[in-house]
Design a protein around this nucleic acid. Structure first.
Length: 193
DNA sequence: AGTATGATTGCCT
DNA sequence: GGCAATCATACTG
């Protein structure tokens, strides 16, 4: 029987999460028509001590162990909703955290949701991004290639130099360079050095 | 049932 | 730069 495609907008989500995280830079993500260019990501994997999935499947991280190309949403610090794309095959517990966008679509809605005018701060950080795109628990497990979500290829001609560095806000595997960003973007949560 | 802990952000000094 | 906010989840007893 045919294997379901894990490819969306030219990205094979059955690949390793660091490869997917790098490829996602420069692509565009929309939730109900609101979103922008992905400028910062982080990769996590089941073999990775910093990953939610490292200690095995639980109710919270179940989506990470499901099919690739879906959304994993978690609550951070009791305040923020953060969004990941599930990678590899079901059971691996791998994913990519979306950390920052360059806002291009639905700026007014983002400003309303964030209570903020500064475009640079609308999606500069995983919690901010989640708030700007109105991400919440109900999106956990949803498909990335079906409404309300849409993943679009990079804008043709985009200057796309990807930089890598250590991930932010973790206490384990801190030297693993699995944070990726669009070089020189003013929309990053923090600069790369 | 109680406690410890964040893949963070925003406000304060 | 420091730190409080705030709560779902996981873990302990």
């Amino acid at each position: 029987m045919p294997t379901a495609s894990t490819s969306i907008a030219g990205i094979d989500f059955s690949a390793a999460s660091d490869s997917v995280a790098r490829q996602l830079i420069g692509m565009r993500i929309l939730m109900a028509g609101v979103g922008g260019v992905i400028v910062e990501t982080e990769a996590y994997d089941g073999e990775d001590p910093a990953s939610h999935s490292f200690s095995g499947q639980t109710a919270r991280n179940a989506a990470m162990f499901g099919p690739p190309g879906r959304i994993y949403v978690y609550r951070s610090y009791g305040i923020h909703w953060c969004m990941n794309f599930v990678c590899r095959e079901a059971g691996h517990g791998a994913g990519v955290l979306l950390r920052a966008l360059e806002p291009t679509h639905g700026l007014d809605q983002m400003r309303d949701r964030r209570g903020l005018a500064d475009t640079r701060l609308l999606c500069a950080g995983p919690g901010r991004l989640g708030q700007a795109l109105a991400i919440d628990r109900s999106m956990n497990g949803m498909r990335l290639d079906q409404p309300p979500f849409a993943l679009l290829e990079s804008v043709p001609g985009l200057q796309r130099t990807v930089v890598a560095g250590p991930r932010i806000g973790i206490s384990k595997a801190v030297d693993q360079p699995w944070r990726f960003g669009l070089a020189g973007s003013p929309y990053l949560s923090r600069p790369f050095r």
